[in-house]
């Protein structure tokens, strides 16, 4: 196995992430997948939006595009269509991908653009200081939900399956081996692959909801197989919302995989064999 540092811009360190943030574990697992597949470093482009998760692309030694909030799938679409020989990977957060960027994400999935999207879901807006996201569970505390979140949240994988994503998976940052395996599968998949990683934000979500620091959050997310929602209910920090209304049962693993035509834009047919 190649030294993971081969894929890092060490000159760009130290990084901006807080101590204990799981986003770094996610990156490590991804780089292991890249290494497993022996992807040519010159032919891998990573495209991100805005957020702590999106900042990851600054530290990897590929061609990297740190775009605008939520728009990474649209940048990635142009990049992939103009250079089909590139492997294009989007790194995005739950706020980035599901709030401001929801439209771009579902259309990239619908078209079956041959890119891989890693959505690092920490149930909160980390970068801007812990505001509620479309993924914040009902009842959870965020800086903009001081009395507990009263909005229902998205199930990102169901949303993407509905949009027609040809590969949909969910993994936990607490299980790095699983992450690497599923990411390698997603990278290998011909067409749009979507991987929701249940990541965390000890700095805001963990602190506000008294879950604890990085280690506690990882334990907390892996208490039950179904992911975050169950343990969240168990933790019983939710005072004002009946516990029964907290959704539970988030499945992990590859949830959908099908082969369907890849969209490569309107072009001369012989151009898009890849």
């Amino acid at each position: 196995m190649t030294d993971v540092k081969t894929y890092l811009r060490e000159w760009a360190m130290p990084h901006v992430l807080c101590p204990g943030c799981a986003h770094g574990i996610v990156l490590r697992s991804f780089l292991n997948a890249v290494d497993q597949l022996q992807i040519d470093q010159d032919k891998l482009a990573m495209v991100a939006g805005i957020g702590c998760s999106s900042r990851l692309v600054g530290y990897v030694d590929f061609c990297t595009l740190h775009g605008t909030h939520g728009r990474a799938p649209a940048f990635a679409t142009g990049l992939k269509l103009a250079r089909p020989d590139l492997k294009v990977v989007v790194v995005t957060g739950d706020g980035d991908a599901l709030a401001i960027g929801g439209n771009h994400l579902i259309h990239a999935a619908r078209r079956n653009i041959d890119i891989t999207v890693l959505l690092l879901n920490n149930s909160i807006y980390g970068m801007t200081g812990g505001q509620a996201a479309p993924t914040t569970p009902e009842g959870a505390l965020a800086s903009t939900t001081p009395a507990g979140n009263t909005e229902p949240n998205f199930d990102a994988c169901k949303l993407l399956m509905g949009a027609g994503a040809s590969f949909v998976a969910r993994v936990l940052a607490a299980n790095p081996m699983d992450m690497t395996k599923v990411m390698a599968d997603g990278l290998d998949h011909p067409g749009f692959s979507f991987i929701e990683v249940i990541s965390d934000c000890p700095e805001y979500f963990g602190r506000y909801n008294k879950v604890g620091g990085g280690a506690e959050m990882l334990t907390w997310m892996s208490v039950r197989d179904e992911g975050v929602a169950g343990p969240l209910a168990e933790k019983r920090f939710v005072n004002h919302i009946p516990i029964e209304s907290v959704p539970s049962g988030m499945e992990t693993g590859v949830l959908q995989r099908e082969i369907r035509p890849v969209y490569a834009g309107v072009r001369k047919v012989e151009d898009h064999e890849s």
Partner: peptide
């Protein structure tokens, strides 16, 4: 465009349109 070796895409909105253009431009 296709006969000239180019690519066309109708995007989901104008924000995405210019994003795709910038992505394509970075691709050369």
């Amino acid at each position: 465009l296709p006969d000239l070796g180019g690519v066309f895409i109708q995007m989901e909105d104008e924000i995405a349109s210019l994003a795709s253009v910038i992505g394509a431009s970075l691709a050369g």
